[in-house]
């Protein structure tokens, strides 16, 4: 193999890395807010599916990416409020509620998708997705140009999202309250902070970003909805949060690492023909998640009140 070919392979893998990391970044950043406030949402997978479907459906009927994204955001907000209702207000076991959300997400999206698209109106099946935007001049930089400056809008948005999340958590009163509520809710309560409100907001931020992560899959990555399109990314995002030590920058790094595995999987699949059975590559992200979880010793950064309903 000559050098040029290797370089071009590396280039395409790296470009795909960011694209594949993007849904994880959205979802994991959201879950950081949720978990930092003391709520764990393992229903991310289901919420991603709901976001993916609502974005897809609205876009396919209105031909407007903007309306599609808006409806994904709306579905995320509704999911987040419902999740908060059960976990914060009713104080039910968060893991059980999360498992239920995954079932509802799977069942409901499958049901709606089959109901709407079984009639054979195939022209609606494929969307015009977010186009990739070449940034003038920068995209012409050899090698890095394609990796960094020829992506679509939702990928670029992560460049804003991560620092913004980090800023909110470390430099705003809201971020301070979120951290206090997740570490020591009673201390926050006696300081006059509304624990319930903070947890509702944080959980809803988490669900909304998960829905966006899902919408990315159907509207920017693929150009249609497929049942179960999240393929475990909701759970991988949970591992990303742990691996990133509950910090936005850490989660971005962890997401990019997983992005590499996804990109490798895609690239090798395309290259190897039938030499390596595709399942061996397909399994890579899942194995990587297991290895990451095992390699983490201790969990010093875990919010103390994580998973515990607050009773005044």
């Amino acid at each position: 193999m000559d050098i040029l070919l290797l370089v071009s392979i590396a280039q395409s893998i790296l470009a795909a890395t960011w694209r594949m990391a993007t849904p994880l970044i959205y979802t994991a950043i959201g879950e950081i807010f949720t978990e930092r406030s003391g709520v764990i949402n393992i229903g991310l997978e289901g919420i991603m599916l709901i976001g993916a479907l609502s974005g897809y459906v609205v876009t396919s009927y209105t031909d407007s990416l903007f309306l599609g994204i808006s409806s994904a955001v709306l579905s995320g907000i509704i999911s987040g409020l419902l999740f908060s209702l059960f976990t914060v207000t009713i104080k039910a076991n968060q893991i059980v509620v999360g498992a239920a959300f995954n079932m509802i997400g799977t069942g409901l999206t499958g049901f709606i998708y089959r109901t709407l698209y079984s009639g054979g109106s195939t022209d609606k099946l494929v969307l015009d997705t977010f186009p990739s935007i070449k940034i003038p001049l920068l995209s012409d930089i050899p090698f890095f140009g394609e990796i960094l400056f020829q992506q679509n809008l939702m990928v670029y948005a992560t460049v804003v999202l991560v620092p913004l999340a980090a800023f909110i958590l470390s430099k705003t009163a809201f971020g301070l309250y979120v951290k206090a509520v997740g570490e020591h809710p009673k201390a926050a309560d006696t300081s006059g902070i509304n624990v319930t409100l903070i947890r509702y907001i944080s959980t809803t931020i988490g669900a909304t970003l998960a829905a966006l992560g899902g919408a990315y899959l159907s509207m920017a990555h693929a150009n249609q909805f497929v049942e179960g399109i999240a393929t475990g990314r909701g759970f991988i995002a949970l591992a990303v949060v742990v691996f990133g030590r509950w910090s936005p920058w850490g989660a971005m790094g962890a997401s990019l690492l997983f992005g590499v595995f996804y990109a490798l999987q895609l690239r090798l699949q395309a290259m190897s023909g039938n030499v390596i059975p595709y399942q061996f590559l397909q399994v890579l992200p899942y194995l990587a998640t297991l290895i990451v979880l095992v390699s983490l010793k201790g969990r010093g950064a875990e919010p103390k009140a994580l998973g515990k309903p607050y009773k005044a």
């Binding site: 951290k179 206090a180 570490e183 020591h184 201390a187």
Partner: peptide, 8 residues
């Protein structure tokens, strides 16, 4: 029991 967040 003190109402202080230890990580802050």
């Amino acid at each position: 029991h003190f109402m202080l967040v230890p990580t802050l």
